[in-house]
Simulated assay, not measured.
Amino acid sequence: MNVRFDLDPSVTPALRDGICALWSDVSNADGAVGFVPPVTQDDVRPELLRHLTSMAEGRTRLLVGRDPDDRVLAAAFLTLNDHRLMRHWLWVYTVMVHPSAQGQGVGRELMAAVADAARSLDGISGIRLTCRGGTGLSRFYASCGYKEVGRVPGAIKVADGDFRDDITMWRELG
């Protein structure tokens, strides 16, 4: 699939709406991006605004993937550390690939673009992310060069009686 990735694109109303639609579509397809379906774009919008505010404050960077028609197909937020002993690595949050593009290599392309973006930032030598257990995501991230470095059993409550592990993954950049 032909996807163009951009780091720090201009946040236009069209891009904002595209990310909001992506986030709700991924959530409603059981994607582990902070919500449990069903959700609407109105449910997602406040969380997106928190991410955009963090971007405006210079703490977070946006990586977005678009198809040739400029439709948002993938996104990830890279959050810089402000602690002086941890500025050499960053967090990756809210990694999303549109359900229509899953299984076509877009997720691998997104994670490769995340690594390239991190390498382009001064002094960054590692990437940290977390994922929800029981989804197969830890296997996907491992196939992209990440290794599991921690796990908190039952830390994520998806529903009454449905608790998932919070898995921490790490990728050293070389």
Score class of each variant (00 low, 15 high):
A75D: 04
A113E: 00
V11F: 04
F140I: 13
E47W: 11
N28E: 09
L110A: 05
L137M: 14
R164C: 14
T60V: 10
G105D: 04
V26K: 02
I124Y: 03
D6H: 09
Y146C: 00
K157S: 09
T60N: 01
V95M: 00
P99A: 12
D8P: 04
W170V: 09
D116G: 14
F163Q: 11
I167Q: 02
H83R: 14
M96A: 04
T130F: 09
G145S: 11
V64S: 02
L22N: 07
V97F: 03
Q102T: 12
N2W: 00
G126P: 01
P9E: 04
D67C: 04
D82V: 11
E47R: 15
P46I: 07
A32Q: 05
R16F: 06
A118Q: 02
L7R: 06
W170P: 01
A76N: 07
R119C: 15
L7V: 14
Q104V: 02
D162R: 12
R132K: 14
W89C: 06
L129N: 10
T40H: 05
V97S: 01
P153I: 01
S125H: 15
P9V: 06
S125T: 15
G154M: 08
D6N: 06
A142S: 14
D166T: 01
S138N: 11
V44K: 00
A115C: 13
A75P: 06
D116K: 13
S24R: 06
D43H: 11
S143R: 15
A118C: 13
W91N: 14
R59V: 05
I127W: 01
A142Y: 10
S24N: 08
A21N: 02
L121H: 12
G105Q: 09
T168C: 00
R45P: 04
L62H: 00
C131D: 05
A115G: 08
G103R: 09
V149W: 01
W91Q: 12
F35H: 11
M111A: 03
S24H: 07
L7P: 07
R16E: 15
A155N: 05
